[in-house]
Design a protein around this nucleic acid. Structure first.
Ligand SMILES: [Zn+2]
Ligand SMILES: [Zn+2]
Ligand SMILES: [Zn+2]
Ligand SMILES: [Zn+2]
Lengths: 144, 144
DNA sequence: TACAACCTGTGTGTTACACACAGGTCAAGG
DNA sequence: CCTTGACCTGTGTGTAACACACAGGTTGTA
């Protein structure tokens, strides 16, 4: 039987993350000591390593929870797994593109600001640097 | 004097976002009606448009708050502004790179899974698809 | 037995909203 | 005058995935 800390070492996961996973019910302790300490088996370490693999592939903790719950009922989660990854590939591509646009905006701004002196704010201007950026043509901040 | 909704229309910002900015003190009402409704001037609309410009450039709401507070004290925020954008460019580049790596992992996995059938979970396997991904060589999830 | 180092569970803070809820306001209809 | 309905108001809570802090328990050493 492993304590939280031992389980953390065994599964190469920070202990506070293990505690977080316990809190949200993603993992459950196999037993409980009298003083309230939670105890685990080596099976739980394997479970944790699975969780880290899934996270590495972009699954959210909620999705991982669904997957393990399906698996515990004997239902194959593979179909959902494929769909989730497909969906996430789309999502991620869009996010990357948006972040690259932001990157370009920031780089252009910084370059443009090189020629501009610092300003002193008055009533109708907060920061002329930011205000000098042409940004009124259709906003972004699109999601999922 | 404008109500929250009118301010939202004037500044092209969703009303619930205006209310959120009020809650966190990013903007303050110019006056208050007897029934508790908050009232604003057209200057507040300009402030909101500034906030949207700053967000468009990657500033967080906290940073924007600092900037406007500096500006209200007559101190020039320009120096901080430049530094923040420089820092964010670095940050964003790292995030984009990590997300592109994730993208590649997901695409490779999906391709690899094309040849694999769905599996039925047993005691020592949750999802063989996820488990089949070679992912033990040094984990990522690096931040700031 | 005293002390320090470490470990425990749990409460709260983080970001930028989104949603829900109970109640207030306003114009139209009866 | 009253009611119905649409709309608007402020505010409480939920979101993702932890990070940090805190008070108290445990363990090893002197
Ligand atoms: Zn990873
Ligand atoms: Zn400035
Ligand atoms: Zn934008
Ligand atoms: Zn599977």
């Amino acid at each position: 039987m492993l304590t939280v800390n031992e389980l953390a070492l065994e599964s190469d996961t920070p202990a506070h993350v293990v505690r977080y996973y316990l809190r949200i019910g993603l993992i459950q302790p196999a037993a409980q000591q009298e003083n309230g300490y939670r105890l685990f088996t080596s099976n739980d370490a394997a479970r944790l390593r699975f969780i880290r693999m899934a996270k590495h592939l972009g699954f959210t903790l909620n999705e991982i929870k669904q997957i393990t719950q399906h698996a515990e009922l004997g239902e194959s989660p593979c179909d959902d797994v494929r769909k989730i990854v497909q969906h996430r590939i789309h999502e991620n591509r869009a996010k990357i593109e948006e972040m690259m646009k932001l990157q370009e905006r920031m780089e252009q701004a910084l370059e443009q600001w090189d020629l501009m002196p610092d300003g002193i704010p008055d009533g109708n201007s907060v920061c002329h640097l930011i205000e000098s950026v042409e940004g009124s043509e259709g906003h972004c901040h699109t999601e999922t």
